[in-house]
Computed example of a mutant assay.
Amino acid sequence: MLVTDPAAFLAEISSERYPVRAAATARAAFLVSPASDRLAAESAQDNRYMDMAKVPDPARALRQHAELARRLGADVPVLTFPGDPDCPDDMFPNNVFATARGRLIVGRMRHAVRRREAERADIRGFFRDVLGYRTIDLSQRDFVAELTGALVIDRARGIGYCGLSERCDMHGARAMHEAFGLNLTFCFELAPGEYHTNVVLALLAGRAAILAPDGFRDPAVPSAITQACDGRAVALSVAQKQAFAGNAIALAPDRAWMSTAGAAALEPAQRAALQRAGFALRDVELDEIEKAGGSLRCCVAEIF
């Protein structure tokens, strides 16, 4: 079922038809190492978090990325695929590749520079030939669906939160709902200028949310999401959102990860709220990678 009205979403989610039926966190993750010495000018057309005036330092980005992989390995096995110098955004693979119950899902990207990533034979082959996953290929379809950039998922209950923008339209939302096998998807418009839901909303192991209210066109949407989490939500300011505090992930039931800039932006009361929800907060320095308009969660493709 797809719903677009906050009141309808709350009525549906309170019906007790969506109990916990699956693991809330991934069993592994994969990353793609940064390999380009430039930013993707095409992506900057609708990603206001990018600053084309900033000159990337490829060596520093690679060191930060390697440290991210090492640190996340404390929670799950982490694989790293090599990056492509001709694909400046490929260090954000979760927009292009995602998994669900033995399926590899390949997204339909808005920009041509990112569509090249979807053609990678090595990632497709790993999931097909090594893990035995079935491929659901959306990459050539006539819509836009940038997977877990646009779609934030409560994996435990099979509930999706899909932000509509230039990076995901309603047809794409429906295709992702079916590809991930979700029970319920709440679709809503992001605020003008926002490109991905996972910058303004994180769901941590299905138990708590981090959200930026100004990132949603309708203020009733973040309110409804907060109610759906039984009030276990940390609301971010505009400055905290800009620092990527909303681009967080839980790869273990008791630990949340975000970049050092995002973590530093949080107030003590917000950190305490995450602790009460059962999450220890950990961070990794990613300021070089954040020049490209994404942060920690964008770097992580979960393997379910």
Results as ranks from 00 to 15, higher is better:
residue 1 M to C: 10
residue 4 T to F: 12
residue 11 A to C: 06
residue 16 E to D: 11
residue 22 A to W: 05
residue 26 A to I: 02
residue 29 A to L: 03
residue 35 A to N: 04
residue 36 S to M: 07
residue 37 D to M: 01
residue 43 S to K: 04
residue 44 A to W: 04
residue 46 D to H: 12
residue 48 R to P: 03
residue 52 M to V: 06
residue 52 M to E: 08
residue 53 A to T: 13
residue 57 D to K: 14
residue 57 D to M: 10
residue 60 R to W: 06
residue 64 Q to D: 11
residue 65 H to L: 07
residue 65 H to Q: 09
residue 65 H to W: 07
residue 68 L to N: 05
residue 68 L to T: 08
residue 70 R to K: 13
residue 71 R to M: 14
residue 73 G to Q: 01
residue 76 V to F: 12
residue 78 V to G: 08
residue 80 T to R: 04
residue 81 F to V: 09
residue 83 G to M: 15
residue 86 D to F: 11
residue 88 P to F: 10
residue 88 P to H: 07
residue 88 P to G: 10
residue 89 D to W: 02
residue 98 A to E: 00
residue 101 R to Y: 00
residue 104 L to Q: 00
residue 108 R to T: 01
residue 108 R to F: 00
residue 108 R to Q: 10
residue 110 R to H: 11
residue 114 R to H: 11
residue 115 R to Q: 15
residue 117 E to G: 03
residue 117 E to A: 09
residue 118 A to L: 09
residue 118 A to S: 13
residue 121 A to Q: 08
residue 126 F to S: 06
residue 128 R to C: 10
residue 128 R to L: 12
residue 140 Q to E: 14
residue 141 R to P: 01
residue 146 E to R: 02
residue 149 G to V: 04
residue 152 V to I: 15
residue 157 R to M: 07
residue 158 G to V: 13
residue 169 D to E: 12
residue 171 H to S: 15
residue 173 A to Y: 12
residue 173 A to L: 09
residue 177 H to K: 03
residue 177 H to N: 05
residue 181 G to V: 02
residue 181 G to F: 04
residue 182 L to W: 03
residue 183 N to P: 01
residue 184 L to Q: 03
residue 186 F to Q: 06
residue 186 F to N: 06
residue 194 E to D: 05
residue 197 T to K: 09
residue 199 V to W: 11
residue 202 A to S: 15
residue 208 A to Y: 04
residue 208 A to S: 12
residue 209 A to T: 01
residue 209 A to G: 05
residue 210 I to V: 11
residue 212 A to C: 12
residue 216 F to M: 02
residue 216 F to Y: 05
residue 216 F to E: 02
residue 219 P to Q: 05
residue 220 A to S: 14
residue 225 I to E: 05
residue 226 T to M: 01
residue 227 Q to E: 11
residue 231 G to A: 00
residue 232 R to C: 03
residue 232 R to M: 01
residue 232 R to W: 01
residue 238 V to S: 10
residue 238 V to F: 13
residue 240 Q to E: 14
residue 241 K to F: 12
residue 241 K to C: 15
residue 245 A to I: 06
residue 248 A to I: 14
residue 249 I to H: 08
residue 251 L to A: 03
residue 256 A to G: 09
residue 258 M to K: 11
residue 259 S to E: 07
residue 264 A to R: 15
residue 265 A to S: 15
residue 270 Q to Y: 04
residue 274 L to D: 01
residue 277 A to Q: 04
residue 278 G to N: 07
residue 281 L to G: 02
residue 283 D to A: 15
residue 284 V to K: 10
residue 285 E to S: 14
residue 286 L to R: 12
residue 289 I to N: 06
residue 290 E to W: 09
residue 294 G to R: 04
residue 295 S to Q: 09
residue 298 C to N: 13
residue 299 C to S: 14
residue 299 C to G: 03
residue 300 V to N: 08
residue 304 F to I: 00
